[in-house]
């Protein structure tokens, strides 16, 4: 019976004409894979690689009032070093992002730990609860903080109506701290999942082994759990650090003049200042800055984890 079916299907499948093209596809798995992938890859190349290449090209051109002078020049790159504000803003943006990254990761770790090790029932509910906010509007989350921290905002008016203060606190809004708080909140959901996944993946028998061999909860955490969750922590850091350096929405809404970041300057070059080539060069510097920091961070992370594993062994 089974043999018959196989024979029948073989008979149906076999006489398929193998012309040049289809024979080629039948023979080469990679050809089928690439064909299937080509539309997606094509779109990504046209909508991402080509524009980024043109951005780079623009950074070597100059703005001539309304037209763009396409003679190759390093003028924009030189200009970056002539006014020290650009470099200062880049460093400041990186600092703000680094603080935000550190804060979010430190705050998220216990939460991820709780979900991975302590939640027994309704794990999906917890997962959905922390996943939902990161799909919702970034603009609205930033906007919410403008309302909360504002001069007549939630905190000030709340404290006044409670009789705790007489005058609104002025230091809440329009400074780098407001930017840091807002970003730390807006990106909070992005750091839990990578850390959670890496904690969830840890082989529980390793923890039992550590306990059996006499480690207390604290040293077991430091010697087993923490090092094994480092990939998740590193991924979380990158997820937050890289996009926040270039943020212009948060500084614009809650940062004021003091909280301005490199993203605002770049954005203004494509808006009011209307100097696209300079804006392009600034964004290239920003990407370089981010890349350097990320490489440095990965290097340090690698040294630390290596040192840790040596000590453990």
């Amino acid at each position: 019976m089974a043999n018959k079916a196989i024979a029948a299907s073989a008979a149906r499948a076999a006489p398929r004409p193998a012309s040049g093209v289809s024979a080629f596809f039948l023979k080469h798995e990679w050809a089928r894979g690439y064909t299937l992938l080509s539309p997606t890859l094509g779109v990504m190349i046209i909508a991402m690689c080509v524009p980024v290449f043109m951005l780079t090209a623009h950074s070597f051109w100059t703005q001539n009032y309304l037209t763009i002078d396409k003679t190759f020049t390093f003028a924009n790159y030189v200009q970056f070093w002539e006014k020290e504000i650009y470099f200062k803003l880049l460093v400041k943006s990186i600092k703000i992002s680094a603080i935000v990254t550190f804060t979010t990761v430190v705050l998220a770790y216990p939460m991820a730990y709780f979900m991975a090790f302590k939640v027994k029932k309704n794990k999906l509910v917890w997962l959905i609860l922390i996943t939902v906010p990161f799909w919702t509007s970034f603009l609205l989350r930033v906007f919410a903080w403008k309302i909360i921290l504002g001069f007549n905002g939630v905190i000030n008016s709340g404290l006044i109506s409670l009789g705790l203060i007489q005058e609104p606190l002025e230091f809440l809004l329009y400074n780098p701290t407001a930017v840091i708080i807002t970003l730390a909140h807006a990106w909070a959901a992005f750091v839990i999942l990578p850390i959670y996944v890496s904690l969830e993946k840890i082989d529980r028998s390793l923890l039992e082994a550590a306990t059996d061999l006499g480690d207390g909860p604290v040293s077991r955490f430091l010697r087993v759990t923490l090092p094994l969750s480092m990939p998740g922590v590193i991924a979380a850091c990158l997820f937050v650090f890289i996009p926040t350096v270039g943020d212009y929405v948060t500084p614009k809404l809650v940062g004021g003049t003091e909280g301005i970041m490199i993203g605002n300057i770049i954005q203004s070059q494509f808006g009011k200042a209307n100097n696209w080539p300079l804006g392009s060069a600034l964004s290239i510097y920003m990407v370089f800055g981010i890349t350097l920091c990320v490489l440095g961070f990965l290097l340090v992370a690698r040294l630390i984890t290596k040192g840790g594993s040596l000590k453990a062994s």
Binding site: M48, P51, V52, L55, P243, Q267, W276, V287
Partner: peptide, 9 residues
């Protein structure tokens, strides 16, 4: 990739 880079590109 920071959104601003994709946006201006």
């Amino acid at each position: 990739v920071p959104g601003i880079i994709l946006g201006i590109a």
